[in-house]
């Protein structure tokens, strides 16, 4: 059976008939071609699929697309404004936080939430904000550094 989905994705209205058991991740990737969000575990353990659902970071692999009905979804593709990168994206590049880059979109979305919610994130907040994101390459050091840099930038 299909569901008539109406929602906002990256600020644009989207209307589609979709299978009701389709996950938001598969909807984004397979129906809209927004392949920035990744599926690495499909169990909510790795955070690679993190998107914002009405401003809160969620695992798109565990959210049914139909549950986004009437709501607003934001993905990594919408972080940059045309060619201008978001400060957190630039910081990820500058610190080398994107090594293999596979966890990067999810981490950017989780980190962005922290910066949106807290002007001066404490170290512990910072760690907690990305504890749901696994990175197998960096050991997290450069990621923490990047978020800190982006936080300082937002303050300035």
């Amino acid at each position: 059976m299909t569901w008539h989905l109406e929602c906002t994705i990256n600020d644009a209205p989207v209307t589609r008939d979709i299978p009701e058991d389709l996950t938001l991740l598969d909807f984004l990737r397979d129906h809209l071609g927004l392949t920035g969000s990744k599926g690495a575990c499909l169990e909510g353990e790795c955070g690679s699929c993190t998107v914002h659902l009405d401003d809160a970071p969620v695992c798109s692999c565990l959210t049914l697309a139909a549950q986004a009905h009437g709501r607003s979804v934001c993905t990594v593709e919408a972080l940059a404004e045309s060619t201008t990168l978001d400060p957190i994206q630039q910081a990820f590049i500058d610190t080398g936080a994107a090594q293999c880059g596979y966890c990067t979109p999810g981490l950017l979305m989780a980190g962005r939430t922290l910066l949106d919610r807290t002007a001066f994130p404490e170290a512990n907040h910072l760690l907690t904000s990305i504890e749901g994101n696994l990175c197998r390459c960096t050991g997290y050091a450069s990621i923490i550094e990047a978020i800190q840099i982006a936080a300082n930038e937002s303050k300035a």
Binding site: T35, G36, V76, L79, F92, I93, A98
Partner: peptide
């Protein structure tokens, strides 16, 4: 020098294509 990754921009915008991203289209 700690030059930033040449593929850094595409990795942070989600534009870069990994194996499963090639399926689209």
């Amino acid at each position: 020098q700690s030059c930033g990754r040449l593929d850094g921009a595409t990795k942070t915008t989600g534009a870069i294509k990994y194996g499963a991203d090639l399926f689209w289209g």
